Lab assay of single mutants.
Amino acid sequence: TETYKYDDKREAEKAAEEFRRRGITVTVEERNGTWVLESK
C-alpha cells in the first residue's frame, strides 16, 4: 500500500484517475483536512 497526500480534493481525484487508468485500485478519503490517496 502506498499513500499520497494532497491538499486539494481535485488534485487527489485527478491522481486517482491516473492510477485507475493503469489498472491500480486506489481509494481517496479526507483525513484531518488532507486528502489521502491510497493505492492497494
Results as ranks from 00 to 15, higher is better:
Arg21Tyr: 05
Lys5Ala: 12
Gly33His: 03
Ala15Pro: 00
Leu37Ile: 13
Arg31Tyr: 10
Asp8Thr: 15
Ala15Cys: 09
Gly33Phe: 03
Ile24Arg: 08
Glu13Arg: 03
Glu13Ser: 04
Arg20Phe: 08
Gly33Glu: 03
Arg10Ala: 14
Glu38Arg: 11
Asn32Tyr: 05
Thr34Leu: 14
Lys40Tyr: 13
Ala15Val: 08
Val36Gly: 02
Thr25Val: 13
Glu17Met: 09
Gly23Tyr: 02
Lys9Cys: 08
Lys14Asn: 08
Asp7Gly: 11
Arg22Asn: 06
Glu29Ile: 15
Glu38Gly: 04
Glu29Val: 15
Asp7Glu: 12
Ile24Tyr: 15
Lys9Phe: 10
Trp35Tyr: 07
Glu17Gln: 09
Lys14Glu: 11
Lys9Val: 08
Ala15Thr: 04
Arg20Ile: 06
Val36Arg: 03
Ile24Gln: 08
Phe19His: 03
Tyr6Ser: 02
Val36Leu: 06
Arg10Thr: 10
Thr1Ala: 11
Thr25Lys: 11
Ala16Trp: 03
Tyr4Lys: 08
Asp7Phe: 14
Asp8Ser: 15
Thr34Arg: 12
Thr1Asp: 09
Phe19Val: 02
Arg22Val: 06
Lys9Thr: 02
Arg31Ser: 06
Thr1Cys: 15
Phe19Gln: 03
Glu30His: 10
Ser39Lys: 14
Thr3Lys: 10
Glu18Lys: 07
Glu30Thr: 04
Tyr6Ile: 02
Arg31Cys: 09
Thr27Trp: 11
Gly33Ser: 03
Asn32Lys: 05
Arg22Thr: 04
Lys9Leu: 10
Val28Ile: 14
Tyr4Phe: 11
Thr27Asn: 07
Tyr6Thr: 02
Ser39Pro: 13
Asn32Arg: 03
Gly33Asp: 03
Asp8His: 07
Glu11Asp: 10
Asn32His: 06
Asn32Gln: 06
Ser39His: 13
Glu11Ser: 12
Thr34Ile: 15
Thr3His: 10
Thr27Cys: 05
Ala16Asn: 01
Asn32Ala: 06
Trp35Leu: 01
Lys14Leu: 11
Lys14Phe: 07
Ala16Tyr: 04
Glu38Leu: 15
Arg22Glu: 04
Lys40His: 13
Leu37Arg: 00
Glu38Val: 15
Thr3Asn: 09
Gly33Gln: 03
Lys5Val: 15
Gly23Ala: 02
Val28Lys: 00
Lys40Ser: 12
Ala16Phe: 04
Gly23Asp: 02
Asp7Gln: 13
Glu29Tyr: 15
Ile24Trp: 12
Val36Lys: 02
Val36Ala: 03
Phe19Gly: 01
Glu2Arg: 13
Arg31Asp: 06
Val26Pro: 01
Val28Glu: 01
Thr27Met: 08
Asn32Phe: 06
Gly33Leu: 02
Lys40Trp: 14
Glu18Ile: 08
Ser39Gly: 08
Arg20Glu: 04
Val26Lys: 02
Glu11Tyr: 04
Gly33Pro: 01
Arg20Cys: 08
Tyr4Glu: 04
Gly23Pro: 00
Ile24Ala: 08
Thr27Arg: 09
Arg10Phe: 12
Thr1Gly: 12
Thr27Ile: 11
Ala12Leu: 03
Glu2Val: 15
Asp7Val: 12
Glu30Asp: 07
Glu38Asp: 06
Thr3Cys: 14
Val26Ala: 05
Ser39Ile: 15
Thr34Val: 15
Trp35Ser: 01
Asp7Ile: 12
Glu30Ala: 07
Lys5Ser: 13
Thr1Ile: 13
Gly23Met: 02
Ile24Val: 09
Lys5Gln: 12
Gly33Tyr: 02
Glu29Met: 12
Ala15Asp: 04
Thr1Met: 13
Lys5Glu: 11
Thr27Ser: 09
Leu37Asp: 00
Gly23Ile: 00
Val36Asp: 02
Glu18Arg: 09
Lys5Pro: 04
Ala16Gln: 06
Arg10Ile: 12
Trp35Arg: 01
Tyr4His: 10
Thr3Tyr: 12
Glu30Leu: 14
Ala12Trp: 01
Glu18Pro: 02
Arg21Gln: 08
Tyr6His: 02
Arg20Trp: 07
Ala12Tyr: 02
Ala15His: 07
Thr1Ser: 12
Tyr6Leu: 02
Thr27Phe: 11
Glu18Trp: 14
Glu18Asp: 09
Glu18Gln: 09
Val28Thr: 03
Glu11Ala: 12
Arg21Glu: 04
Thr27Asp: 05
Arg22Phe: 06
Leu37Tyr: 01
Ala16Arg: 04
Tyr6Gly: 01
Tyr6Gln: 01
Glu13Phe: 11
Thr27Val: 11
Val26Tyr: 07
Thr3Phe: 11
Gly23Phe: 03
Ala12Gln: 00
Thr1Lys: 11
Glu18His: 08
Thr3Glu: 09
Leu37Val: 14
Glu17Cys: 10
Val26His: 02
Arg31Trp: 08
Thr25Trp: 15
Thr27Gln: 08
Thr25Ile: 14
Arg10Trp: 12
Arg10Tyr: 12
Gly23Leu: 02
Arg20Lys: 07
Thr25His: 13
Gly23Glu: 01
Arg21Thr: 05
Asn32Val: 03
Phe19Tyr: 08
Asp8Trp: 03
Lys9Gly: 03
Ala12Gly: 01
Glu17Tyr: 07
Arg21Trp: 04
Glu38Tyr: 13
Ala16Lys: 04
Gly23Gln: 02
Lys9Met: 07
Glu13Trp: 09
Phe19Asn: 01
Tyr4Met: 10
Arg10Gln: 13
Glu18Met: 10
Phe19Thr: 01
Ala16Thr: 02
Val36Ile: 13
Phe19Ile: 04
Ala12Thr: 01
Tyr6Ala: 01
Ile24Asn: 06
Val36His: 07
Glu29Asn: 08
Lys40Phe: 13
Lys9Glu: 08
Glu17Asn: 07
Tyr6Pro: 01
Thr1Pro: 11
Tyr4Trp: 13
Val28Asn: 00
Asn32Trp: 05
Lys14Asp: 08
Asp7Asn: 14
Tyr6Arg: 01
Ala16Gly: 02
Thr1Asn: 10
Arg21Phe: 05
Glu2Gln: 14
Val28Phe: 04
Gly23Ser: 02
Glu17Ile: 08
Arg22Leu: 10
Glu2Lys: 13
Tyr4Asp: 04
Lys14Thr: 08
Gly33Ala: 03
Glu13Gly: 02
Asp8Glu: 06
Lys9Asp: 02
Thr27Leu: 08
Glu30Val: 07
Thr3Ile: 13
Lys9Tyr: 11
Arg22Ser: 04
Glu29Lys: 11
Ile24Leu: 12
Ser39Glu: 10
Glu38Gln: 11
Asn32Pro: 01
Glu30Met: 10
Val28Leu: 13
Phe19Glu: 01
Arg21Asn: 07
Thr25Phe: 14
Ala12Lys: 00
Glu11Pro: 02
Glu11Met: 10
Glu17Thr: 06
Val26Asp: 00
Ser39Arg: 14
Glu38Ser: 12
Ser39Leu: 15
Glu30Gly: 04
Ser39Cys: 15
Val28Ala: 02
Thr3Pro: 09
Tyr6Phe: 14
Ala15Gln: 07
Arg10Pro: 04
Ala12Asn: 00
Ala15Leu: 03
Ile24His: 09
Lys9Asn: 03
Ala12Pro: 00
Asp8Cys: 07
Tyr6Glu: 00
Ala15Phe: 04
Glu2Asp: 10
Glu38Ile: 15
Lys5Arg: 13
Glu11Asn: 06
Ser39Asp: 07
Tyr4Asn: 06
Trp35Pro: 00
Tyr4Ser: 05
Arg20Asn: 06
Glu13Gln: 08
Asp8Val: 06
Glu11Leu: 10
Lys5Trp: 14
Arg10His: 12
Glu11Thr: 10
Arg21Cys: 08
Arg22Trp: 07
Glu30Phe: 15
Glu17Ala: 10
Thr1His: 12
Arg20Gly: 05
Val28Pro: 02
Glu13Met: 13
Glu17Lys: 07
Glu2Ile: 15
Gly33Trp: 02
Val36Asn: 03
Asp8Tyr: 05
Glu38Thr: 15
Thr1Trp: 15
Ala16Ile: 05
Val28Met: 09
Glu11Arg: 06
Glu29Thr: 14
Ile24Pro: 00
Val26Leu: 05
Thr34Trp: 15
Ile24Asp: 04
Thr3Leu: 12
Gly33Thr: 02
Arg22Cys: 09
Val36Ser: 03
Lys9His: 07
Arg21Met: 09
Glu30Asn: 11
Glu17Ser: 06
Glu30Arg: 09
Ser39Trp: 15
Gly33Ile: 00
Glu30Trp: 15
Val28Gly: 00
Lys5Gly: 07
Leu37Ser: 01
Val26Gln: 01
Asp8Leu: 07
Glu13Tyr: 11
Asn32Ser: 06
Phe19Asp: 00
Gly33Cys: 04
Tyr4Arg: 10
Trp35Asp: 01
Lys14Ser: 08
Ala12Phe: 02
Glu38Phe: 14
Arg20Thr: 05
Phe19Pro: 00
Arg20Ala: 09
Glu30Tyr: 15
Glu13Pro: 00
